[in-house]
């Protein structure tokens, strides 16, 4: 039996909004560690990894590891029926073919439940080893979102370079080209407004902007984003989910013809 009670239901709503445009169907895995998901987009260019740790739930019961295949668009539709202040409980029976989402409003005078059929998904799980990255940049998530949006009005791809000068985002298109440099800046009022650059080695990689724009749907989950880059690896954009875990997006680079 599975029963997960999340007081801050809005988190789950935001998580679904962050993933549903990138991934259509995915398996949610539930174990003693937490509620997790790993899925690739249909073209296998990007991957999303979600972890909501068991400690972050008010009540977490998972008698045995369970995998639940769901259409993320349908889950998102159901979660739109939950208020932002609602408590969300996810329930499933071992071996059952449905999952139930229950929403309780803060006054506890309205309780809704939605039962959804699970899907049998044949999804591939990739092993992602810990890696040493050439550069790790932490910056305000809203700033990153703004940069991706602004550059995609000019070009389709972005070259992200990290040097001692800072992190540079460059694009080119029919109307011209653009460069945005963010320097390290730790003299800010709040730590989440800082741009912090850790660089072991200069790195420069090219990425498709449409995927980065899709990742920025997670902006409301975290005030900061951490971008990890290595010349031999996909980019990782990590949004921490306060007290619970993270949502990480991996993006394979583009290379010269």
């Amino acid at each position: 039996m599975l029963e997960l009670r999340l007081v801050q239901g809005s988190l789950l709503k935001k998580v679904l909004e962050a993933m549903k445009d990138l991934v259509t169907d995915a398996n949610f895995d539930c174990s003693a560690t937490g509620f997790s998901l790993q899925a690739m987009d249909s073209s296998h260019v990007a991957l999303v990894a979600l972890l909501l740790r068991s400690e972050g739930f008010e009540h977490y019961r998972c008698d045995r590891n369970i995998t639940m295949g769901m259409n993320l668009n349908n889950v998102s539709k159901l979660l739109k029926c939950a208020g932002n202040d609602d408590i969300i409980t996810i329930k499933a029976d071992d071996g059952g073919d449905t999952v139930t989402f229950m929403f309780e409003n803060p006054k506890q005078d309205k309780i809704s439940d939605f039962e959804m059929k699970l899907m049998d998904l044949d999804s591939e799980h990739l092993g992602i080893p810990d890696a040493e990255y050439h550069a790790i940049v932490r910056m305000p998530s809203l700033e990153f979102s703004r940069i991706c949006k602004d550059l995609s009005s000019i070009g389709d791809t972005v070259v992200i370079s990290v040097t001692k000068e800072g992190i540079k985002f460059s694009t080119r298109g029919d109307i011209g080209n653009a460069n945005i440099v963010c320097r390290q800046n730790t003299t800010v009022d709040k730590p989440e407004e800082a741009t912090v650059i850790q660089m072991n080695e200069a790195v420069s990689l090219t990425f498709a902007l449409r995927y980065l724009n899709s990742f920025t749907k997670a902006t409301s989950l975290s005030e900061t984003v951490t971008i990890s880059l290595s010349s031999e690896l996909p980019l990782v954009a990590e949004y921490k989910i306060a007290d619970m875990g993270y949502i990480k997006f991996y993006l394979a680079p583009k290379i010269e013809d």
Binding site: V45, E124, G127, I128, D156, L233, Y250, A252, I255, E256
Partner: peptide, 14 residues
């Protein structure tokens, strides 16, 4: 412009 690599070229199935 350029060739888009796939995630599966970097990480293997478990």
């Amino acid at each position: 412009s350029g060739v888009q690599l796939s995630i599966t070229e970097f990480y293997r199935s478990t």
